[in-house]
């Protein structure tokens, strides 16, 4: 079976700076791979290259069977990127945002509504403008957008940032569930304990190159404490301006 991500000596430049300086990486379908490394190591750049946002300057880079050196546009609708930014319009409501991005991706609106329901956004938060939400609530909306698109490859950059404990459990559960359904997940996180409980492999990146690539010893697969949580509807509280 062809790997979902296949990089050999992949180089990506930010200006003249080689943010990726020869990355070798392979990720198989259904794998959950934790990407770790110090600040500025190239984690975010690698995720953006995998999404097709940043170009590959040299080397081999194939994602979902597409050669990124020739075409980095056609894979974009097939990946879901959750970055530091939440990709939301402040002036629109939660439902407006989720439905807009779902329609843009030709996703089923029922999936969008179901995603909002899973993230605890279908109740009183549904018609609240995103500008009035807390950081954690915004992150939940961003996850709902990602979920509604049903991406084949999940690219998550510090996905737990801003989420409360319930939200983190919920996200981990969604990641595990997505992998079981056949999606592949590459995520960067500094929360190692939590990340290790869902990941199959840990890849370390430093200075723009992969320095270690190890399976998690004793890993039982994605059977972490989070399994079973996604079906819960979590009350995520009130928007900031509601007393």
């Amino acid at each position: 079976m062809e790997p979902v991500i296949h990089f050999r000596s992949a180089v990506s430049l930010l200006g003249r700076f080689p943010a990726l300086a020869g990355v070798d990486l392979e990720v198989d379908p259904g794998e959950i791979v934790l990407l770790r490394g110090p600040n500025g190591a190239g984690k975010s750049t690698l995720l953006k290259v995998c999404s097709g946002l940043l170009p590959v300057a040299a080397g081999t880079a194939r994602v979902l069977g597409v050669d990124l050196t020739e075409d980095r546009h056609s894979i974009r609708p097939r990946v879901g990127l959750l970055g530091h930014a939440t990709f939301l319009y402040d002036e629109l409501t939660v439902a407006d945002n989720v439905e807009f991005w779902a329609r843009a991706a030709r996703a089923d609106l029922d999936d969008a509504h179901h995603a909002m329901d899973r993230l605890g956004l279908a109740g009183r938060l549904r018609d609240v403008r995103v500008a009035r939400l807390s950081a954690g609530q915004r992150r939940r909306v961003a996850i709902a957008v990602l979920l509604s698109r049903r991406p084949e490859l999940w690219l998550l950059d510090e996905p737990h940032a801003g989420l409360d404990a319930d939200g983190r459990d919920l996200l981990d559960g969604l990641v595990v569930e997505a992998a079981r359904a056949g999606a592949t997940v590459l995520f960067a996180s500094h929360e190692l304990d939590r990340a290790l409980s869902v990941a199959h492999r840990v890849v370390t990146i430093a200075g723009g190159v992969i320095t270690t690539d190890e399976p998690i010893t004793g890993a039982t697969g994605p059977t972490a404490h989070t399994v079973g949580r996604p079906d819960d509807v979590v009350d995520v509280g009130r928007p900031d301006d509601v007393a």
């Binding site: 946002l53 974009r76 609708p77 990127l81 970055g83 990709f87 939301l88 991005w101 843009a104 991706a105």
Partner: peptide
């Protein structure tokens, strides 16, 4: 300015629109 806030520009590029 609507498309420049909160990474929306990248999201538009990724959206498939």
């Amino acid at each position: 300015s609507l498309e420049s806030a909160d990474g929306v520009r990248d999201a538009l590029r990724l959206s498939g629109l």
